[in-house]
């Protein structure tokens, strides 16, 4: 999987960090860890989010997924609002907490073991059914809308994953560019420090 993961295997956006403004550098480097203890998620919840995130981002690298879990914990422990929430969907802290419990319960009911103990295919199927709102009927779903639960987890997980500088390098994203900006922006042109495609497939 690794060789297909990127078209820019020799590009490392972090090599450019000395050209970034200090505030940006500080923000981005923090994503490499180490991370503080979780403020909201219990250990078993964090492990469960980690296990779910592997499927959402199609990646299993611990150093990146640790950041993803850390980000979700930060979002849930922060006082900031959640932009929007569908009427009849519980506030995000209880959506996630009760939702994670429901995912384990669902897994138990469907496969006879909690989520982290069933095999990867079963895990994937379970998440897919949640996404489509087709999980096995349980009373919990009256209070925890399946699709809203899936969307909340998936959105936070994806937001963090594509904010990680290792992932930026892999997709060939030049990223932060202040104060120098981008000079060669026309079709076919790149600045000397940008990702160059050295794998052409």
């Amino acid at each position: 999987m690794q060789e297909k993961r990127t078209r820019y295997p020799s590009y490392d956006v972090l090599r450019e960090q000395e050209h970034w403004d200090e505030h940006t550098r500080e923000i981005v480097l923090k994503r490499l860890g180490p991370f503080d203890q979780h403020k909201f998620l219990e250990d078993h919840e964090a492990a469960l989010v980690f296990g779910i995130a592997r499927h959402i981002v199609y990646d299993h690298r611990k150093e990146i997924l640790d950041y993803v879990v850390h980000h979700l914990d930060q979002s849930l422990s922060s006082a900031a609002g959640e932009d929007q929430r569908k009427v009849d969907t519980p506030e995000q802290r209880s959506l996630v907490r009760d939702g994670l419990r429901a995912i384990d319960k669902l897994s138990q009911k469907q496969y006879g073991a909690p989520f982290l103990e069933i095999d990867e295919k079963e895990q994937y199927t379970l998440l897919q059914e949640l996404d489509q709102g087709k999980a096995l009927p349980m009373r919990t779903w009256q209070r925890i809308p399946q699709q809203e639960l899936f969307k909340k987890l998936a959105t936070e997980i994806i937001s963090a994953y594509y904010s990680h500088p290792v992932v930026w390098s892999e997709i060939g994203y030049g990223g932060p560019a202040y104060p120098r900006g981008y000079v060669r922006i026309e079709q076919g042109l790149t600045d000397p420090w940008e990702a160059k495609r050295d794998v052409n497939k």
Binding site: R5, R7, I56, Y124, A154, Y162, I171
Partner: peptide
């Protein structure tokens, strides 16, 4: 999400 999203983003 999953592999489909990953493949799209690889070609960002």
């Amino acid at each position: 999400w999953g592999k489909k999203l990953h493949d799209i983003m690889r070609d960002f």
